[in-house]
Structure formats: structure tokens, C-alpha cells
Simulated scan of single mutants.
Amino acid sequence: MTFLDQLNVTHPIIQAPMAGVSTPALAAAVSDAGGLGSIGVGATDAAGARAMIDTIRALTDRAFNVNVFVHATPTPDAAREAAWLHAMRPLFNAYEAEPPTGLRIIYRSFADDDAMFEMLVETAPPVVSFHFGLPDAARIKALKDAGCALIATATNLREAKAIAAAGLDAIIAQGIEAGGHRGMFDPDAADDMLGTFALTRLLVKNTSLPVIAAGGIMDGAGIRAVLDLGAVAAQLGTAFIACPESSADEAYRAALAGEAAQHTLLTKAISGRPARALANRFTAWASQTKAAVPDYPIAYDAGKALNAAAKAAGEHGFGAQWAGQGAPLSRAMPAADLVALLHRECS
């Protein structure tokens, strides 16, 4: 029985978690349509995550995925954070706002969040996925004992082998084309920036786990291509942003449908970790600043404050508008219709 068969997923289509954009309604619609819907809970606490899981279960009886962030515990650096806020001050002042007086660790790593861990063991979602790394062996065993299938993101073969050694059930091969945060375990290590095709084939040939390809896949032709490379499924994120069930705001949707979609780029400035976004005013500023970016997610506290100040003044160019290189291929339609179309295109 294949990995997808075990989950009763009939189409080789996984909707990426996209914390802050994916919703229970989006995940449920994808799962009901035969794919695997996902939510990202890295930007909420255990109570918020439980509420999302309860909502999905009220909407569908199909399998779904819950994604958590397993980043290293950040190291506060008062001097670096003060210098970062000083560099950002002109941006705040342009919108008649003051930067924060200090920066906080706004998101806890799953590795440090006992409440999130205990809630996931109790609620036992069908799939739990890890981004930025792996939790310890005890947490992996407890989730597996609860009946959860476990998957994790790899950006290179070394990370994939660590995932296999940890006893997980599948690997997400995240190519450099992917939107949102790079799943690399160590953001300070050299990044080989492997593309989706090369990485997928590398992991298929050199690991025994099912491989899910992610990065730049927007239509059935892309899904078929990675299946031909040996992947068991494709994970698509940017393709689902324009669906009405996502929580993307109107400015994000307009940017995705406009010229900015032609110019995605990787930046650490928004959150403190490399992530691919639509070109906007924040990424333009980030490409010029010389200030050192604080650790993830400390830098995100500043970015969110700046975006809030700018939006209050009617400027929407400072948001975290994550998107992959396939962004110009985006199609706006209900999630169930998109899954059905993708399935027809790749058949």
C-alpha cells in the first residue's frame, strides 16, 4: 500500500501548509476533493491550533496535515536588534510611526512547546509535518504511537537522510523555486539551492522513503513531471493562495495577479530566515540595507510592526507576500475546482 493509499488520498496533490494563509476551510476543501489539505500552526499556540483542527474535523472526515516549525531556539542579541530597528526607523517614520522599543520571540519552536506537543498527541491529526528541522526522538515516537503519519521538509540529501534515520514516513523535497520559508535545518549553513527536479530525483535515488516534490509546481504538467521523476505526490502552495478559501488579503491577491509575480526573490529581512516572496517595497529595501538581520522569528516582530504601520497609512507593500517562482501561473478559483482541474491536467 502506498503512502497516499494509507491516508485514503486519491489524488497526488498536497496543498502546502502556508502558516498565515492556509485555513481550515481551504484544507478541508482540498481533502474533500481528493487531495491532502494542510494547515500551518507555527504562528499560533496550542489553543489556536486545537481550534483549527476541530474546525477541519467539523468540515471533513478525510485526512489532513498539520505543520509545525522546528527551528532552533533563537538567540536574542540586543545590540543587533537595536541596530536593525535603527535601520528600519526611516521606514516607520515615513508612515508617522515609531519602531518597537524592543523585539520579541513571537513564535515558539515545536521543539520547545510542550503544550503544542501534548495537544497534537491528544488530537492525533492524520498527518503531522515538520519544517526547519526535526523534533527529538521522544516526540517523534509519541506522535507515531498516537497514529500520526510524519513527514518533514528537506532541501538537500543530508537533511533527507536525517529524516529517514529519524523514522519518518515521507520526505518533502523542497526546491529553491518554492515560495515561503526555506526548510533548511541550519539557516547559517551553505545552501546548495537545489531545484525541485534535481532534488526530487536525488532523494528518490538515494533514500527509501516516499518523496513529495515541492517548489514551482502550479499545474498538472508540473505534477506529472515530478511523478515521472519518482515522487509520490506534488505539494503546491502558491497555486492555492488565490483560492477564496485562503486568508490572503486583497493586496496579496492583487500582487500575485500583477507584475510582482514575475519577480520573486529570497530574503531574510522579513522574518530572519530565507524565504521567497513577491517583490515589494520591503524586499526592495532589504536588498539595500547593510544591517545584520536578527534571528528568526525575532526579526519577524519588526517586520509585522512595519507592515501594520504601513497598512494603517494605506500602503500594502510591506507584507510577507510569500510566493514561488511559478507565481505567474496562478489561477483564481475555489479550491475544490482547482484540485479537480489539476487532477485532469496530470492524468
Results as ranks from 00 to 15, higher is better:
residue 101 T to W: 01
residue 102 G to S: 15
residue 102 G to V: 12
residue 103 L to E: 00
residue 104 R to P: 01
residue 104 R to F: 09
residue 106 I to L: 11
residue 106 I to W: 05
residue 108 R to I: 04
residue 111 A to T: 14
residue 111 A to D: 13
residue 112 D to V: 03
residue 112 D to C: 02
residue 112 D to K: 09
residue 113 D to M: 06
residue 113 D to Q: 08
residue 114 D to W: 03
residue 114 D to V: 14
residue 115 A to Y: 05
residue 115 A to P: 07
residue 116 M to F: 03
residue 117 F to T: 13
residue 118 E to Q: 10
residue 120 L to N: 11
residue 121 V to T: 07
residue 122 E to N: 05
residue 122 E to R: 10
residue 122 E to I: 01
residue 123 T to E: 15
residue 124 A to C: 13
residue 124 A to E: 09
residue 124 A to H: 14
residue 127 V to A: 08
residue 128 V to T: 11
residue 130 F to R: 02
residue 131 H to R: 05
residue 132 F to K: 02
residue 133 G to I: 03
residue 135 P to N: 01
residue 135 P to D: 03
residue 136 D to T: 13
residue 138 A to S: 13
residue 141 K to M: 01
residue 141 K to D: 14
residue 142 A to F: 08
residue 144 K to M: 01
residue 145 D to Y: 03
residue 146 A to T: 01
residue 146 A to L: 10
residue 148 C to L: 00
residue 149 A to G: 04
residue 151 I to Q: 12
residue 151 I to D: 00
residue 152 A to Y: 10
residue 154 A to G: 05
residue 155 T to A: 04
residue 157 L to H: 01
residue 157 L to P: 04
residue 158 R to K: 15
residue 158 R to A: 15
residue 159 E to M: 05
residue 160 A to K: 01
residue 160 A to G: 11
residue 162 A to G: 09
residue 162 A to K: 15
residue 162 A to D: 09
residue 163 I to M: 05
residue 163 I to Q: 01
residue 164 A to T: 04
residue 165 A to V: 04
residue 165 A to R: 08
residue 166 A to N: 06
residue 167 G to E: 02
residue 168 L to F: 00
residue 169 D to F: 10
residue 169 D to V: 06
residue 170 A to N: 11
residue 173 A to Y: 03
residue 173 A to W: 01
residue 174 Q to N: 12
residue 175 G to A: 03
residue 177 E to W: 04
residue 180 G to Y: 10
residue 180 G to N: 06
residue 181 H to F: 13
residue 181 H to K: 10
residue 182 R to C: 11
residue 183 G to K: 09
residue 184 M to C: 11
residue 184 M to P: 00
residue 185 F to P: 03
residue 188 D to R: 12
residue 188 D to V: 07
residue 188 D to I: 07
residue 190 A to I: 14
residue 191 D to P: 08
residue 191 D to T: 03
residue 194 L to P: 07
residue 194 L to K: 04
residue 195 G to T: 15
residue 196 T to I: 05
residue 198 A to Y: 08
residue 198 A to H: 04
residue 198 A to P: 14
residue 203 L to R: 05
residue 203 L to N: 03
residue 204 V to K: 00
residue 205 K to A: 15
residue 207 T to M: 12
